[in-house]
Design a protein around this nucleic acid. Structure first.
Length: 570
RNA sequence: GGCGCGGUAGCUCAGUUGGUUAGAGCGAACGACUCAUAAUCGUUAGGUCGCGGGUUCGAGUCCCGCCCACGCCA
């Protein structure tokens, strides 16, 4: 029994996420959280929406809503979808929460006191009509190099030349289209990450067994070129955490907010406070403060590879630089990308399957199984409808679902709907139990190491053992000569259904719970002792024949979906 | 252009610190069974482990060079 803090990278508030986003962080984090809870560990699993920054403001403007209102609505949408996919967050917070405001300002004050913040003057394009400074990519104009009339402030998409906004001929705001722009001087705060380089490197070197993907990305940023660079942590925006030194004003920083990358990871901590303030738990500090009990907490973060630099470098700079006893991450599990049918998923182009659409066509478990068993752990992986169809049909419908079906229906027709009582186990059963024990232990090992694809393979192999056993002992033949023996075989097989439901729950929670309900199982404890777990349903125990646990995806459906999701999101 | 991750059976992927005939699932062929969601189980076929060198008694596994795909950055 241990204590585990688990966080998933927080999804940006702007719009519904696609399956690539889901499988890159939230879903594997949920798998791990569910597994650890099932093993009896104390788990705090947190996620939130990342709400600040220009894209949120622009999306709100496009929707014709105040940004706060827009974010509140989108939080609800994302929260509902998370529930739809059975993501078992203890709390789904918001980076715009008052708790995060206070904490972000607190960290800024601590970092400043430690001499880790410096002020930098820079010039930036200001739009009078929009009443704001414009980031490079929100400025367009004619390229001085090739004459292309929609060159962006940072680069011309036509001739690929690198540009500075001041180079553009007739620059205009992409927000309002206004050409009333001027270069203005503005001051910003920079986090002096460069002075923390040695300490970070030392810390990363002591991290044992981190995935190559994680450490190689971190090392690269640490040592590439001139080494780790200082980064701006403030922006001239309205929507965000106001720049303050704790609860005191920050002279010269009036009207500015912290840059989104600075406040977003701090939300991991603030989210624990939100969890308490929402009445769902108590004493968040024992999860986050090593001076208040968090020393024995194991903290695991899940994220896509694009988020690694922030979690291995920037956020640790915030934590270490504060010189306060905050919990640092123990293990970072990062993922590659999931591609869609020969290309990338794309939020901006609406390419691929989005979370809301996925749930419209199939229940969550179908997606969870495919996504988790194909999670891009070692390299990018690819979603194709053919692969999805065959995996779901074979693994879920034929191997697992049909097993439950054949066992319960056979029992009903021969012995009725209660667990038959006669017969004693022999060598065939001993062999099955030995094989199954080995497989379950293997599954546990992979789950503990967060080797998700291997865990899925082991789980599936455990399902197959049941079918092998039935085929081998053939109760439909046994019953003709030795009815007591057939009863024993079926009693064991019924117990297998229950055991499968228990161990499969982290992957397919709904189907598991349906199967447990059908078996009328009270006991859903983890099978520490497999032989004993296979006696949980005693002789005479009544059960129901489950509804079809997993239905098959037909060729017609597959073709229909393939066409429907081929192009733009409608 | 720099960097990163990869390139292993038709497909999706495993291959620990180099060691006997390179593995699994799917797909294919054949067979068994008939309880079950035309499900299940078994057997077989199939790979010069991207290419070329090198180190070694021995390399998919280490070193060098090259090619290809994807991604990140400038």
């Amino acid at each position: 029994m241990a204590r585990h803090l688990i966080t998933s990278a927080i999804p940006y508030i702007n719009g519904v996420k696609h399956l690539g986003n889901l499988v890159g962080s939230q879903l594997p984090a949920d798998l791990y959280a569910r597994y650890l809870r099932a093993r009896g560990h104390e788990v705090l699993f947190l996620c939130a929406t990342d709400e600040h920054g220009t894209p949120a403001e622009l999306a709100a403007a496009k929707a014709g809503k105040p940004v706060a209102e827009y974010c509140a609505e989108m939080w609800q949408v994302q929260s509902d979808l998370a529930e739809g996919f059975r993501l078992s967050f203890d709390h789904f917070g918001r980076s715009s929460s008052p708790q995060n405001h206070t904490l972000t300002q607190h960290f800024a004050a601590r970092l400043d006191a430690a001499g880790l913040i410096r002020e930098v003057s820079e010039t930036q394009m200001y739009s009078h009509a929009d009443g704001r400074f414009l980031p490079d990519r929100y400025i367009e104009g004619t390229c001085p190099n090739c004459g292309f009339d929609s060159a962006r402030g940072d680069q011309c998409d036509n001739c690929t030349k690198q540009l500075d906004p001041v180079d553009l001929i007739n620059p205009r705001s992409t927000i309002s289209g206004s050409t009333d722009l001027e270069m203005r001087e503005t001051k910003h705060l920079y986090l002096r990450q460069s002075v923390m380089k040695e300490r970070l490197e030392e810390w990363i070197d002591t991290r044992q067994g981190w995935p190559v993907l994680t450490t190689s990305i971190a090392k690269k940023w640490l040592n590439d070129g001139d080494g780790l660079q200082d980064r701006g942590i403030t922006r001239d925006l309205d929507w965000g955490v106001p720049v303050m030194k704790g609860d005191q004003p920050w002279p010269g920083m009036e009207g500015k907010v912290f840059y989104v990358w600075f406040d977003a990871p701090i939300e991991y901590i603030a989210c624990a406070q939100e969890w308490v303030d929402a009445g769902k738990g108590q004493d968040w500090e024992r999860w986050w403060r090593t001076d208040k009990g968090a020393d024995d907490v194991r903290y695991t973060q899940f994220m896509g590879k694009d988020n690694v630099p922030f979690h291995t470098l920037s956020f640790p700079v915030t934590i270490l630089g504060s010189a306060e006893p905050w919990k640092l991450v123990d293990y970072i599990k990062s993922f590659n990308y999931l591609n869609y049918d020969g290309g990338q998923f794309s939020t901006s182009r609406g390419r691929g399957v989005f979370m809301d659409q996925a749930l419209e066509i199939l229940p969550a478990d179908y997606w969870r199984w495919w996504l988790l068993s194909h999670v891009p752990e070692t390299s990018d992986s690819e979603f194709t409808w053919e692969n999805f169809q065959t995996s779901v049909n074979k693994d879920l419908a034929d191997v697992l679902g049909n097993f439950a079906s054949r066992v319960t229906k056979f029992c009903r027709s021969k012995f009725g709907t209660s667990v038959p009582e006669a017969g004693a186990q022999g060598p065939d059963e001993a062999r099955l139990i030995a094989d199954l024990t080995a497989k379950v232990r293997e599954y546990e090992t992979h789950m503990e190491a967060i080797e998700i694809r291997k865990a899925a393979t082991a789980l599936r192999a455990a399902w197959v053992l049941g079918n092998e056993y039935l085929q081998e002992v053939a109760p439909w033949s046994t019953i003709k000569t030795d009815e007591a023996k057939a009863q024993m075989q079926i009693r064991l097989a019924l117990n297998l259904v229950r055991l499968y439901a228990v161990i499969s729950a982290p992957f397919i929670p709904d189907a598991s719970s349906d199967l447990l309900k059908a078996m009328r199982a009270e006991d859903a404890a983890w099978p520490e002792d497999v032989a004993q777990a296979l006696t949980a349903l005693p002789a005479g125990h009544a059960f129901d024949v489950p509804e079809v646990t997993f239905r098959k995806i037909t060729d017609a459906e597959r073709e229909d979906w393939q066409g429907r999701f081929a192009g733009q999101r409608g």
